[in-house]
């Protein structure tokens, strides 16, 4: 079955978010050309653009039957970690120096960036991918349907046969 209105809605929301996030990045880049260099708001704009663009791209790829189901949690988590991590790094006063307190061996803002953005998602995002794989990505049934459709395609004379419509089944 082709796309439903709902499916379009989730995809459209993701695409609009990617577009707006890219526009935010473009604006930040443009602001860097201003005399005196990039103003402080350009850093925030770029940080938030990144925080929106990456999870929105994940939503675009993960959407199935017009929904993302439980994946909304890891995607929201990615947004919060990136937006929160970069936001804190930008907002917190500099505390690095000889007497600075350390978190796992790093000054606070560095620890937020390295451990928060660089490590924390590893514990959540790929695990979420694996745990939802059968339901949201590719079950045995899905694969069987695709393979049957591929077989049908090979047996048909025309290359533009509706092979993948059949393969979709639940879509």
């Amino acid at each position: 079955m082709p796309f439903t209105a709902d499916a379009d809605m989730v995809k459209r929301a993701a695409l609009s978010a990617i577009f707006l996030a890219t526009l935010a990045v473009a604006t930040a880049y443009t602001a860097a050309f201003l005399p005196g260099g990039a103003p402080a708001w350009a850093n925030w704009l770029l940080a938030m653009g990144i925080a929106v663009a990456l999870p929105a791209t994940m939503v675009l790829g993960a959407e199935r039957n017009g929904r993302i189901g439980k994946l909304a949690i890891p995607f929201a988590f990615v947004f919060l970690v990136i937006a929160g991590g970069f936001g804190l790094a930008l907002a917190l006063p500099a505390s690095e120096g000889p007497g600075a307190s350390l978190w796992f061996g790093l000054p606070v803002r560095a620890a937020i960036i390295l451990y928060g953005i660089g490590l924390l998602p590893v514990l959540i995002v790929p695990v979420a991918y694996a745990l939802t794989f059968d339901e949201m990505t590719l079950s045995e049934d899905d694969l069987e349907r695709v393979r049957r459709a591929a077989l049908a395609l090979r047996e048909q004379p025309k290359p533009e046969a509706p092979e993948l419509v059949a393969a979709g089944g639940d879509r």
């Binding site: 660089g118 790929p126 991918y129 990505t137």
Partner: peptide, 18 residues
């Protein structure tokens, strides 16, 4: 490290998208 940091996310993103 900003060249490496996205690796915590990009492989999952690539799996979903591509």
């Amino acid at each position: 490290m900003f060249l490496l940091l996205p690796a915590s996310i990009t492989n999952s993103m690539g799996a979903w998208v591509l």
